[in-house]
Amino acid sequence: MIDFLTKMPKAELHLHIEGSLEPELMFELAQRNNLPLPYADLEAVRQAYQFGNLQDFLDIYYASAAVLITEQDFYDLTWAYLKKCAEQSVLHSEIFFDPQTHTQRGISFATVINGISRALADAKAQLGISSLLIMCFLRHLSAEEAMQILVEASPYKAQLAGVGLDSSELGHPPEKFTEVFEMAAEMGLPAVAHAGEEGPAEYIWNALNLLKVRRIDHGVRCVEDAELVAVLKEKQIPLTVCPLSNTKLKVFQDMSEHNILDLLEQGVNVTVNSDDPAYFGGYVNENFIALFEALSMSRAQAVKLAQNSFKASFLPQQEKQALLARLDDFAASYALHG
């Protein structure tokens, strides 16, 4: 089963590129940019990664991102993640980036997006991996600052596939950003938003009704509202679920308590993703393997989750169908020879 999960074609729709910064690359970039780090060695970094809640994690996350200075740094960060996709049979990825994390430090928007975009183009040409880029607003900052970064991003609109909303959920409800998302919609950018991770089911409703999002990132607390679950199922609104992240941040105390397979069996369009893999103990395959080991996920459930990942993507229908056909061929071939 682990061999099957590892080789199974899949997409990843919830990945923060800054959250894929492995300790080794962090040290390399700090050295390259002549920056001091608050960690003596790799082991000290790994110790620092033993956080217990979302805010503790975010504090470390933003501090670590300070090593990203040049366009080449952003290229190297993105390329390292895309090479991991190639190893893990991830054929398509929709990548979040947080420009405000960098522009607040005096890094230009162009430096960030050009470095990332160059790696995406090289991955398509050299690795055969397709990708799209989603710009996220930091919800702990003001709506005015979000609007400012949206305006700053407008010359680069062709490089963006959509906008999202991330960072500290509690105390920063979706409605805070209604006008920003209206402006993004006028620019032709589809929306996604983090909701229902630490925040209540109400945040999911508001992300859908006020921000007009097409996907909910996380969304696991939808189960607190039966009507919401019914709407998600009926409209097939995708949830980009991140199991290892949810357990690391104590949304669930243990993987055996996770509700993703229950939601799947109810017909909700759930997908498996890694969120911030350098911090949460694994990339997308490690998340699939954790579901198998803790919840006895079946092969049929795994295939359904992978199908959902392609269907929930922002790819054109023709490209979705081509990827789904590759998954079907793999599953059929494995049934014969696996």
Score class of each variant (00 low, 15 high):
Met8Val: 04
Met8His: 01
Met8Lys: 02
Met8Cys: 02
Pro9Ser: 06
Lys10Gln: 07
Lys10Phe: 00
Ala11Gly: 03
Ala11Arg: 10
Glu12Asn: 02
Glu12Trp: 00
Glu12Val: 01
Glu12Ala: 06
Leu13Met: 05
Leu13Thr: 00
Leu13Cys: 01
Leu15Trp: 05
His16Asn: 07
Ile17Phe: 01
Ile17Gln: 02
Glu18Thr: 09
Glu18Asn: 07
Glu18Ile: 09
Glu18Ser: 07
Ser20Trp: 05
Leu21Arg: 08
Leu21Glu: 07
Glu22Ser: 11
Glu22Gln: 05
Glu24Asp: 09
Leu25His: 13
Met26His: 01
Glu28Thr: 07
Glu28Gln: 13
Leu29Arg: 06
Leu29Gln: 08
Leu29Glu: 00
Gln31Tyr: 12
Arg32Cys: 02
Asn33Pro: 08
Asn33Leu: 12
Asn33Gly: 08
Asn34Gly: 07
Asn34Met: 06
Asn34Ala: 11
Pro36Met: 14
Leu37Thr: 03
Pro38Gln: 12
Tyr39Lys: 13
Tyr39Val: 03
Tyr39Trp: 15
Tyr39Met: 13
Ala40Ile: 05
Asp41Thr: 09
Glu43Gly: 03
Ala44Lys: 09
Val45Pro: 14
Arg46Pro: 01
Arg46Ser: 06
Arg46Glu: 09
Tyr49Ile: 02
Gln50Phe: 02
Phe51His: 03
Phe51Ser: 01
Phe51Lys: 01
Asn53Cys: 03
Asn53Arg: 07
Leu54Ser: 00
Asp56Leu: 11
Leu58Glu: 03
Asp59Leu: 02
Ile60Leu: 13
Tyr61Val: 10
Ala63His: 05
Ala63Tyr: 06
Ala63Val: 03
Ala63Trp: 10
Ser64Asp: 12
Ser64Val: 07
Ala65Asp: 15
Ala65Val: 01
Ala65Pro: 08
Ala65Tyr: 05
Ala66His: 13
Val67Asp: 03
Leu68Pro: 11
Ile69Arg: 15
Ile69Leu: 15
Thr70Ile: 10
Glu71His: 09
Asp73Phe: 07
Asp73Met: 14
Phe74Met: 12
Asp76Val: 14
Asp76Gln: 12
Asp76Arg: 14
Asp76Asn: 12
Leu77Gly: 10
Leu77His: 12
Thr78Cys: 11
Thr78Trp: 03
Thr78Phe: 01
Thr78Glu: 03
Thr78Ile: 13
Trp79Leu: 15
Ala80Cys: 10
Ala80Asn: 15
Tyr81Asp: 06
Leu82Phe: 07
Lys83Phe: 02
Lys84Asn: 15
Cys85Met: 10
Glu87Trp: 06
Glu87Val: 09
Glu87Pro: 10
Gln88Met: 08
Ser89Leu: 12
Ser89Asn: 11
Val90Lys: 08
Val90Gln: 06
Leu91Tyr: 09
Leu91Met: 05
Leu91Arg: 08
His92Lys: 04
Glu94Met: 00
Ile95Ser: 14
Phe96Arg: 11
Phe96Ala: 02
Asp98Phe: 02
Gln100Ala: 10
Gln100Lys: 13
Gln100Thr: 12
Thr101Trp: 00
Thr101Asp: 07
Thr101Tyr: 00
His102Glu: 11
Thr103Val: 06
Thr103Pro: 12
Gln104Lys: 12
Gln104Pro: 03
Arg105Ile: 09
Arg105Cys: 00
Gly106Gln: 14
Gly106Val: 04
Ile107Asp: 15
Ile107Met: 11
Ile107Lys: 15
Ser108Arg: 11
Phe109Ile: 04
Phe109Asn: 08
Phe109Tyr: 15
